[in-house]
């Protein structure tokens, strides 16, 4: 029989542990693109808003490049990117790394569902 103090600590730790290990600690507004990636044999794409926001204003992608502001409403293909559309407007070897650096974008865990994730207070639009 465990001393009751130890047992209490154990239970507390187990509670905290299950709380800490189950949620996803994605950075706020990380987007997973995986409608096509895994079907094509690649890891899902993780798009970090925070990384891009330091370098570009929202309007560059969401007004100039035509990304709609709703997860799931932009079907991005590698063909488009190589043609200079969507991500390819910058990921062309001039402004940002070129599309042949597959693993830098296709860096997600296999099996991730597409969508927007948030590590802090919300899970994104419609799922608050």
């Amino acid at each position: 029989m465990m001393p009751s103090g130890l047992r209490r600590i154990g239970i507390a730790l187990a509670c905290i542990g299950s709380f800490l290990t189950t949620p996803v600690f994605a950075e706020y507004a990380d987007v997973v693109l995986n409608r096509m990636a895994e079907k094509e044999g690649m890891r899902p794409v993780i798009f970090p808003h925070w990384f891009h926001r330091i370098r570009f204003r929202c309007k560059v992608c969401h007004a100039e490049l035509g990304f709609k502001m709703r997860a799931g409403s932009n079907l991005v293909t590698m063909g488009d990117i190589i043609d200079g559309k969507f991500c390819g407007a910058c990921h062309n070897g001039n402004i940002a790394w070129a599309p042949e650096n597959c693993d830098l974008c296709h860096s997600g865990k296999p099996g991730l569902p597409p969508g927007i994730f948030g590590g802090h207070d919300t899970n994104g639009p419609g799922r608050w």
């Binding site: 994605a26 950075e27 990384f51 693993d103």
Partner: peptide, 27 residues
């Protein structure tokens, strides 16, 4: 800020993970 390898999204065994900027480093 969780390290990318622990964020539940990035594959910690992926080849790109070491090259990507960590949120904590930037933010």
């Amino acid at each position: 800020w969780a390290p990318l390898a622990d964020d539940g999204l990035h594959d910690p065994n992926g080849p790109g993970i070491r090259l990507l900027q960590q949120p904590g480093d930037a933010l």
